[in-house]
Design a protein around this nucleic acid. Structure first.
Length: 650
DNA sequence: TGATCGCGCCTTTTT
DNA sequence: GGCGCGATCA
């Protein structure tokens, strides 16, 4: 069968294994995702499983789209599309939309993204008269998010310290605010779905029948809530097929729990474990370097990774003077590889630990006129102008959405200040009505100055006009109406370059809406909240990829640059405190190294002009890479520099 | 009300 | 070194 002919014996075994719980433990580049995809296809093609009984969970939307594409090639579009594919969040969002009534959430709930969450926490802190300086919203939000990932409700939250007591109070208030705005945050999508299944066995039973086969990619990065969801859904048929690599667990900070692998074993005594050890991606040189780095982590199952790809070129370690010199080296190298070795820009990736490092590379690539694309960073959907327009749409969709209302009530400025906005919100709260109703009352109330009243009235009129047509016209047309009625272009195109860029972003969002013309407003808003990168929506271009090590997970490139290999940056200074965090940094480095197929360049600077301007110390990870894998005399220099800085060398 | 200035802050990673 | 926030002024 040609479905299996491209796979090796181990992979075939995994794909064709009989029903029941399965864990595939595999190293990087071993075809994990491919095994998962083929398993899904095999179930349909050979076992006659109806595709709608299969659910495949991926880590990112992009991975889901790629898997969809491959399945369409194998099974044909219609069968592939009747499978359920996506991230946990996307799948849960759909389930909740359908089962809203059972769990008592509004059917038209909106998803609150990270920025909305921070706003809401700030509001909660203010409501409780807590000082934001002492209780930074970000850190409180982190604690709340962690609790939700563990399925702990505000009521069940156990405060073990004074700070914990504060968190508990803010959490309670925050949750009330979310509810008042008919919002669910990212973590709620998982938590509420788990609650739904826990409280309504009859609903769960329906989904257990629906999803008789569940496949999970990147299982090592699931959190407690996700694990519980998997246990609930697979509770009847136990056809759970998980693919994992412990060495690539890089999301502990966001609640990913390595113990889930152990839990899986404990919960399923009949779990079949399969190891995939052959690597199809990288040269032996790259694999050896990666192994040398990851070896230092304690408590891991040693894997014997091997490849048939041969040694390949040596790794290049380069010391640059500062970050601009580092970027220049990268650009020069890319240029040289393009000229001499026929490398395409799209073959190359530049990776770094923090998004802030991307700027120097962007500048350098712009100057060299080499196309590049930036993954993440100021994410498209997090840009102010995009959030403005989406807030308008959300408000039209659900006029009770107070967060969106307060975002755009005075955008562009129409003479409504803080005081008037507060009055609207207070009225809503005191009378127990929505902000929209409060707005309607106040727009004709005499207690306001004429100026504020007229501004409120004008805004209300606009809003009502849009609401009146929201069912009749498409999302793109609705956007046009909003942009036109608010004269948004005049507001944003201030003659500066940034202004033009912002306007271009607006137009791009409009194009996205136009290209999904069949989506209703509700569907569009649901999708938008769950999409993180617009690159996925615009399609592939032949450009150098600039991305963080985290977002490199699951990708591969012929040429990889890992930059900023300095103590304090990679490993990051925030991870120096605990061995667990240091181990995670090491895994992050491992993920980066193993993205490379052929060529690997590792760079660090002599001095990174940062806040303190000190000389930098080369990363300890560099010193782990055996000298014979590296070309030139760089390695000796690294070790000397590390030694003179007093760093312990193994 | 809104714009501007200056201060002080921190500085990871993302569905 | 940049950004967000708050205070201050028009």
């Amino acid at each position: 069968m040609d479905l299996l002919s491209q796979l090796n014996a181990q992979q075939q075994k995994a794909v064709t294994i009989s029903d029941g719980p399965v864990l595939v433990l595999a190293g990087p580049g071993s075809g994990k995702t491919r095994v998962l995809t083929h398993r899904a296809a095999w179930l349909v093609q050979e076992r006659g499983v109806p595709p709608w009984h299969i659910m495949a969970v991926t880590f990112t939307n992009k991975a889901a789209r790629e898997m969809q594409g491959r399945l369409e090639q194998i099974l044909g579009p219609s069968r592939a599309r009747s499978m359920t594919l996506g991230t946990f969040h996307a799948i849960c969002a759909r389930i909740l939309r359908r089962e809203a009534d059972a769990i008592g959430i509004p059917r038209d709930y909106v998803i609150f993204d990270a920025e909305d969450q921070v706003r809401l926490v700030k509001q909660a802190l203010q409501d409780l008269n807590l000082d934001e300086k002492r209780y930074p919203s970000r850190s409180v939000l982190n604690a709340i998010s962690r609790a939700k990932n563990e399925l702990i409700t505000p009521q069940a939250y156990q405060a073990s310290s004074y700070y914990g007591e504060i968190v508990k109070r803010v959490y309670e208030r925050y949750q009330a605010l979310l509810e008042a705005n008919s919002g669910l945050d990212f973590d709620d999508l998982l938590m509420v779905t788990a609650q739904l299944f826990g409280q309504h066995p009859e609903v769960l039973a329906r989904y257990q029948e629906r999803y008789q086969h569940i496949l999970v990619d990147e299982f090592q990065d699931t959190n407690m809530a996700q694990y519980v969801l998997l246990r609930q859904l697979s509770g009847k048929y136990h056809n759970l097929f998980c693919v994992a690599d412990e060495d690539q667990m890089i999301y502990a900070w966001r609640g990913a729990d390595y113990r889930n692998i152990r839990r899986l074993r404990e919960d399923h005594p009949n779990l079949v474990t399969i190891l995939l050890e052959q690597n199809y991606r990288s040269t032996q040189t790259i694999l050896d370097a990666a192994n040398a780095v990851i070896r230092h982590n304690p408590d891991r199952t040693e894997k014997r990774l091997f490849t048939r790809r041969g040694r390949g070129p040596a790794i290049v370690i380069h010391e640059a003077y500062d970050q601009n010199d580092e970027a220049a080296f990268v650009v020069e190298t890319v240029t040289r590889l393009m000229a001499r070795d026929g490398v395409q820009p799209g073959d190359c990736a530049v990776m770094y630990r923090t998004n802030a490092q991307s700027r120097a590379f962007e500048d350098a690539f712009v100057r060299a006129a080499i196309p590049y694309k930036l993954v993440g960073a100021t994410r498209f959907y997090a840009r102010a102008e995009i959030k403005d327009l989406i807030a308008f749409l959300r408000l039209i969709h659900n006029p009770a959405d107070g967060v969106s209302m307060s975002r755009v009530i005075n955008v562009p400025p129409r003479g409504l200040g803080q005081k008037t906005v507060e009055l609207v919100e207070d009225t809503a709260r005191r009378q127990g009505i929505s902000v929209y109703e409060a707005l309607r009352k106040l727009a004709h109330a005499p207690q306001l100055g004429t100026r504020a009243q007229r501004a409120l009235g004008a805004f209300l009129e606009l809003l009502e006009g849009w609401i009146a047509v929201r069912e009749q016209i498409g999302v793109a047309e609705l956007m046009d109406r909003v942009l036109q009625d608010t004269r948004y272009a005049d507001y944003i195109r201030d003659g500066t370059e940034e202004g033009e860029e912002r306007w271009a972003n607006i137009l791009e969002l409009r194009n996205v809406a136009a290209s999904y013309a069949d989506l209703t407003l509700t569907e569009f808003l649901a999708d938008v909240a769950l999409v993180s990168d617009v690159d996925g929506l615009i399609g592939e271009v032949n450009a150098v990829t600039l991305l963080t090590l985290h977002s490199a997970k699951g990708l591969e490139f012929p040429v990889v640059f890992i930059t900023g290999l300095e103590e304090g940056l990679l490993p990051h200074s925030r991870s120096l405190e605990s061995p667990e965090q240091m181990a995670e940094e090491r895994r992050l480095m491992y993920v980066g190294l193993t993205r490379a197929k052929d060529r690997l360049f590792l760079t660090y600077t002599f001095r990174r002009s940062q806040y303190n301007g000190d000389l930098s110390v080369p990363s300890r990870f560099l010193a782990d890479i055996p000298g014979e894998l590296v070309s030139g005399s760089h390695r000796r220099r690294v070790i000397e520099r590390s030694r003179s800085a007093g760093l312990w060398i193994k």
